[in-house]
Design a protein around this nucleic acid. Structure first.
Length: 414
RNA sequence: GUGGCUAUAGCUCAGUUGGUUAGAGCACCAGAUUGUGGAUCUGGGGGUCGAGGGUUCAAGUCCCUCUAGCCACCCCA
């Protein structure tokens, strides 16, 4: 029989890790709401078409990374590889565009059939935001500012730098692409095999190739900045000055491109060098064509997604677990009394741990292990006198407290 | 999908050119302390050595296949 193990690339989130994840999610959601972003949850699977249409037929995500299957009813469905497509679909399904601009925050699992690696899993988790219906550059600035604030709150701001680029509008992009292909064609002989296929499929991707030879070729390549239409250039300038006015520092990175087809104008990434090759921690951009691609009216949009696993790894220390009160019956005769008392304390809002069975010594040991603040001991003598012995687990000091005063006495630990 | 490295107790790891009952530290359980955790001491439980096949008198150790992990490419959060 095969060893019991989770599916490749999936992971159990044991309590310490789970707490890190929750901390990331709750920090994100709290700040997002402060910025006016509402929580939204969409299904973790959709009709395959939702992703296929929006991500583009040729993207890697669609061609080789989708968890796609036919369900018992014959529907072609796919586990979501990213969050934006589902949110946009929900906006259209529910006719929400009449309330635009829309601001949403989401968190949840995503699925991509990839080879696992550090910071890369088949089931991973993201938080993300979408701002739909805002064509102005202030939208980009708000969304980036929210991301930066979340990273700062999580204490990872110092390990991360913001990279920024523009992909221009359709016109800019077409002109640039033409010039880029012409240039690269002339230096075909120097490109890596990977980049030769990119040249045919997605030439912009050559810009961020890690191959040394490619990098040399790219160094002299034409730059998108020289091909921007006046409108696209003005848009990018506004985003930059907006960031500067909020004291958000960034570096412009010519070679920052996007794998997904629906991006235009602003592209940005918060990157760290603390995570090996998967240094991107939060990334996004503007996707003005997406809603239309899905069958809605022309609608602007900007957003980002951040990898919870990657952020959780960067957290210096996991948020500490709450310290409970341990209720400990000394013998079987006090078991019922202790259980009832524990319940009443919980109803008063006090965190209570109660072990089930075992000697008093074993229960004290457990109290130590769960880092209890105090132990409430109930034995024969206490029962006879209607009191409990309260032991401070840090100092070892003990005192007797009448049972009916216990909740009040322990209220400081709420 | 491609390449490299790896897999021995819950965790981190020893295991000598193949040699007989596979070890340590930490963790866990119990006792020393018949109503008291964290320190110390003593004892105990826990391994089909990732799975399957092969070579051999003999395999944790050598060979093959598979699975999984790690690292990088591809790509991405």
């Amino acid at each position: 029989m095969q060893k019991l193990q989770p599916v490749r690339g999936t992971h159990d989130l044991l309590p310490e890790t789970a707490r890190r994840h929750l901390h990331v999610i709750e920090s994100g959601r709290g700040l997002a709401e402060r910025f006016g972003y509402q929580p939204i949850d969409t299904p973790i699977f959709e009709f395959t078409d939702v992703f296929q249409r929006t991500l583009g037929e040729t993207s890697d995500v669609v061609t080789k990374e989708m968890y796609r299957f036919t369900d018992k009813g014959g529907d072609d469905v796919t586990l979501r590889p990213e969050g934006t497509a589902g949110v946009v679909r929900a906006v259209l399904s529910n006719g929400l565009l009449q309330d635009a601009p829309l601001k949403f925050f989401y968190a949840g699992p995503m699925f991509r059939y990839e080879r696992p690696q550090k910071g890369r899993l088949r089931q991973f988790h993201q938080i993300g935001v979408e701002l739909i219906g805002v064509a102005r550059p202030e939208g980009d600035v708000e969304v980036i500012a929210l991301g930066a604030e979340i990273l700062k709150t999580l204490g990872v701001g110092g390990q991360v730098t913001l990279h920024l680029n523009t992909l221009g509008d359709a016109e800019s992009r077409a002109a640039y692409r033409k010039a880029l292909v012409a240039y690269l064609d002339g230096r075909k002989g120097e490109l890596s095999p990977d980049s030769l296929t990119r040249l045919a499929l997605n030439p912009m991707r050559i810009l961020d190739s890690k191959d040394a030879g490619d990098k040399q070729v790219v160094a002299d390549a034409p730059r998108i900045g020289d091909f921007l239409t006046p409108a696209a250039a003005a848009f990018f300038a506004s985003v930059r000055s907006g960031l500067e006015s909020l004291d958000l520092t960034y570096t412009v990175d010519d070679r920052l491109v996007r794998g997904l087809d629906y991006y235009c104008h602003t592209a940005f990434e918060f990157v760290t060098d603390a995570l090996g090759a998967q240094g991107t921690v939060l990334a996004g951009g503007r996707y003005d064509g997406l809603v239309e691609t899905m069958g809605g009216p022309p609608t602007a949009g900007v957003g980002w997604a951040a990898g919870i696993e990657r952020l959780a790894m960067l957290l210096a220390a996991p948020p500490s677990a709450p310290r409970p009160v341990a209720v400990i019956p000394v013998g079987d005769a006090e078991e019922a009394l202790a259980f009832g008392l524990a319940h009443r304390l919980r109803l008063e809002g006090i965190a209570v741990d109660i072990g089930f069975g075992g000697s008093m010594k074993a229960r004290m040991k457990r109290a130590g292990r769960v880092n209890a603040r105090v132990a409430v001991l109930l034995g024969e003598t206490e029962r006879a006198r209607g009191v409990a012995t309260v032991r401070d687990m840090d100092t070892g000091q003990q005192s007797e407290v009448p049972l009916d005063a216990l909740a009040r006495h322990l209220a400081v630990f709420r």
